[in-house]
Amino acid sequence: KGKQYRAGIVGIERQIRDRNEATGETISEAFEDLKNLMKMAKEMVNLSKSVSQKLREKQSDITEDETVQFKSYLLSLGISDPVTKSEYGSGSIFHTELAKQLSEALIKPLQTSGGILSLTEVYCRVNRARGVELISPEDLLNACLMLEKLNLPVKLHKFDSGVMVLRLETYDTASEARKVGEILQDKGSLTADELSIFSKVTLVIAKERLLFLEKEGIACRDDSIEGLRFYPNRFLTEGA
């Protein structure tokens, strides 16, 4: 900065060259640091692999503190490896804690939305509320998988279609199905988006409810270019 440049074209050229050199140095420095960091991380990965090898040699027992700690090491490195480690410690402490926090935070939103929320919705709400230190989709899923074991009031449920939802423990599928069945009788026929408007739930959940009714034999489908409609199942109620 303090360097004096001569006036004229030569001065300007020299100034540009100096500036380029400076940026080049910063860049190579940054990459040098990154390389060092990677080197260290690689060592950590190797180390953790040898540790997991040792773990495998020992017989798997109930959750030992050692394996739990090891799990959290893996997580901080970003190389969680649940396939080989699932026997050695059930999930991580982090996920357990996250599960507790989630169930506490989600009770209110769940109550206002009829006791059921899809996992993507939960993900949006949680991360929107957090702002910083966001959780990854995998963290959320892992935490939700712990919910059952921790005996918390919120449960994870997976539909046949693969859609995952969180439900309150008090959520009653049968009475919900009955309610939807009544709407269906009332309206004569329903599409998923019509139901989502009538019962004020999201489209995904409305569809799952109709599919559930179909599975139970209460509804039947009419698939045409007009869309997928569900009707009360007169095949079973009325006979030939």
């Binding site: 026929s189 179909e214 599975k215 034999g217 039947c220 489908r221 009419d222 698939d223 045409s224 409609r229 009707y231 199942n233 007169r234 095949f235 079973l236």
Partner: peptide, 14 residues
């Protein structure tokens, strides 16, 4: 006259 009659039902009983 029942539209679902024209869609093959996935539920086995139905």
């Amino acid at each position: 006259q029942f539209p679902p009659f024209f869609t093959l039902q996935p539920n086995s009983d139905t």
